[in-house]
Write a protein that binds this DNA or RNA. Structure first.
Lengths: 175, 175
DNA sequence: TAGCCTTATGCAACAAGTTGCATTTGCCCA
DNA sequence: TGGGCAAATGCAACTTGTTGCATAAGGCTA
C-alpha cells in the first residue's frame, strides 16, 4: 500500500507523469522512497483503473505521448484514510549485520572491501542530502510548518547516515 | 537471497528446526532479521530441495515431528559465495517520512497519536536490545573478535534507535 | 469445562518488488 | 556516421513477503 500512498501524496502536491515522479524520487524524495520506473507505470495504471487518478494523454510530436495523472476526489479520500491510520512497524532486515554473525567465515579482504564500498555509499548519500538541503531548504527559519515538516525528515536522514558512517569507521579502525 | 543467507548463517552456527530459528529471530537476532514462520518453512524446504540443507525428522509422541535442518557442503559453499560478494545498496522506503510531506492533510490528532505510538515502539525496541546485551554480551572486554562482531551490530542498532527517539521527541515538542 | 497459549508444521492465494527485454526519436560527441 | 544517452512508455516472468486458514495435543486459567 505504501507505494500507492506515496504516489497519492506526490500527485496531490502536483499532477505529473510517471517519468516526472521518477525524477522527484531521484531528487527531492531520495530519502523517502525509491521505486523503479516499471513499478511506477504499473501502479499508476492500477490506480487509474481503481478510480483514484485520472489520466490525460498529451500527444507529443516525435516522442511517446506524455500521460499526466492527477488525483480524483476518491484519490484524495484514499489519501486521507491512509493518513488517519497509523503505520505498522516495519520489519527489520539488515543483511550486512548478518555477515557480522559469520565473522570467521568472512574473508578479511572481502570484509575490508565491502566496508569501504559501504562507507562510500553512505558518503554519497550525505552529498545528495546536502544538495537537497541547499536546493529546497536553504533558509530553515523562513519555512512554514508544512515546509518545515519535510525538512525534518531530511535532517533525520542525515543524522542516521552520520551515525552509520561513524560506526563503519569505528569497526574498520578496530581491525 | 538474503533470507536464504541468514538461514545459512544461523544453521551454520547450530543446526535446528524452523521453529528454533523463529525463536532465535525473536530473541538474539531481533535487530538483524525478521520473518514469518510460513516464510521460514517454505524457504527451508526449498533450500533442502536445492541441496543446501539436509533434513532429519525426529518423531515426537503426541506432537508434530520436529524437522532438524543442517548445512551440507554445498550449503557452506553457498554461504562463502554470498559472503564474498558485496551487498547491493538497499532501497529507501520510509512511509512515515511520506506522511510529513502531506503535513496539511495529516490531522493533528492522528499525527500526535501516531508519533506517540511510534516512540513507544522505539522504546520497546531499546528494551529488547538491552535484554539481548545483558544476556549475550555482558562483558564486552572479554569477547573474542568473532563474538565482538555481532556485538557491534547491536550497538549500532541501539544508536540508530536512540537517534530516532531524539528526533521524534524533537518533532513532537515543536508543535 | 470451555477457551486461549505454546509447540510444531504447512498450503494457497495474493501483494509487492526485481529483472530482462522492448519501442521511438532527437541530441550530443567522437 | 555510428554509438550512446535522454525522454517516455510498457509487458512478462520471476522472486520475495504477507495474509488467511488448517491441523493436533498438552497445559493453564477463569
Amino acid at each position: 500500500m505504501s507505494l500507492r500512498a506515496v504516489l497519492l501524496i506526490t500527485l496531490q502536491r502536483e499532477p505529473g507523469t510517471g517519468y516526472d515522479i521518477l525524477q522527484r524520487f531521484k531528487a527531492g524524495l531520495a530519502h523517502v522512497w525509491q521505486a523503479s520506473h516499471q513499478q511506477l507505470y504499473r501502479e499508476l495504471d492500477r490506480m487509474r483503473s481503481d478510480g483514484l487518478l485520472t489520466c490525460e494523454t498529451l500527444p507529443q510530436t516525435e516522442r511517446p505521448d506524455r500521460k499526466v495523472y492527477r488525483l480524483t476526489e476518491a484519490g484524495l479520500q484514499a489519501l486521507d484514510t491512509w493518513l488517519a491510520e497509523p503505520l505498522a512497524a516495519s520489519p527489520v532486515r539488515q543483511p550486512l549485520f548478518a555477515k557480522f554473525f559469520a565473522w570467521e567465515r568472512w574473508p578479511e579482504q572481502a570484509r575490508r572491501e565491502e566496508l569501504t564500498a559501504f562507507r562510500e555509499q553512505l558518503k554519497e548519500r550525505l552529498t545528495t542530502y546536502a544538495a537537497i538541503e541547499r536546493e529546497w531548504f536553504s533558509e530553515p527559519q523562513a519555512l512554514t510548518p508544512a515546509q518545515r515538516a519535510p525538512w525534518h525528515t531530511l535532517r533525520l536522514g542525515q543524522r542516521l547516515t552520520e551515525t552509520w558512517v561513524e560506526w563503519v569507521e569505528g569497526v574498520m579502525e578496530e581491525e
